[in-house]
């Protein structure tokens, strides 16, 4: 039985249909990569799976381990093992990072986590993503740099130990060492018989991650499925060949396509 099964999913936001019939099956031990030009529905798909209330499901189904996800509240989905590292994690002043993390762990436990164990895991996680420990005493994401926010998402993933890790452009703004830490935390999920669904524009990240399945999403539909070789091609040629060879209409975004840039370059640009 597949872990996550999506059938004919249609999603609307503010009355506009964004996803127009998505089918996707994810099994244990698989890493799925989702690629597509800007604004074509990648984040929408991940948010719809997690249950962001802004996105209305107008048709289709999502099941997770045989259970109807669409009937579950966001927190029920989280406690069932779904995790989404957001493309833009919000800043929440006044919610202290470490207290938030401890309470989040406890939402999954009958008996609260022991302080000793929590501190140990927290120390290990911050060390692995190379964040100074004092970041856990600050307000959640408040004033964090782009890269720090992304690393903090990984800390959360490490501590919450999901079964299905969904990561939305986790690599943007991260340096190579941090990317390696991300890959190893995804590997941890896989080793626990879980799976991952990852959105990124960067071939460099995918080289490290080695996804088992690749999907291209254009205008709210998955227009092609394949393996990691698809990424190499998109990295070299962009998405235009899909139109020439497969007659797939590509809606042009006015933003530049960012495929091919590596994470380090973006980080340098961010600092300017």
């Amino acid at each position: 039985m597949s872990l996550l099964s999506i059938k004919n999913l249609h999603v609307e936001v503010e009355g506009k249909e964004i996803l127009k019939g998505i089918d996707l099956e994810i099994n244990a031990h698989e890493i799925h990569a989702l690629l597509g030009p800007n604004g074509n529905g990648k984040s929408t798909l991940l948010s719809a799976i997690m249950g962001q209330p802004k996105y209305k499901i107008s048709q289709g189904s999502i099941t997770y381990k045989g259970k109807d996800v669409l009937k579950m509240s966001v927190d029920e989905r989280a406690k069932a093992g779904l995790f989404l590292a957001l493309q833009y994690p919000p800043e929440i002043p006044g919610v202290i990072n470490s207290e938030f993390l401890k309470a989040a762990i406890n939402t999954r436990l009958e008996k609260p986590v022991s302080l000793y164990r929590f501190i140990k895991e927290l120390e290990d996680a911050t060390k692995e993503v190379d964040l100074p420990l004092d970041i856990v005493h600050r307000s959640l994401n408040d004033g964090f740099s782009g890269g720090e926010k992304k690393r903090n998402e990984i800390i959360q993933m490490k501590l919450l130990k999901p079964e299905l890790a969904m990561l939305d452009e986790i690599d943007s703004g991260l340096d190579v060492d941090a990317l390696k830490a991300v890959v190893s935390s995804i590997q941890d999920v896989i080793n626990r018989d879980g799976s991952a669904l990852v959105v990124s524009h960067y071939a460099r990240f995918y080289q490290l991650l080695e996804p088992s399945h690749v999907h291209i999403i254009i205008d709210g539909k998955i227009v092609m499925n394949g393996d990691a070789s698809l990424i190499q091609r998109i990295d070299k040629e962009g998405f235009d060949w899909l139109k020439v060879e497969n007659n797939i209409d590509i809606k042009k975004d006015n933003r530049p396509s960012s495929i091919g840039l590596c994470g380090i370059k973006e980080k340098v640009n961010e600092k300017r």
Binding site: G51, P53, V74, D75, A78, T107
Partner: peptide, 9 residues
């Protein structure tokens, strides 16, 4: 929403 994605009701 963010807090709910982390398991808080």
């Amino acid at each position: 929403y963010y807090l709910q994605t982390r398991g808080f009701s």
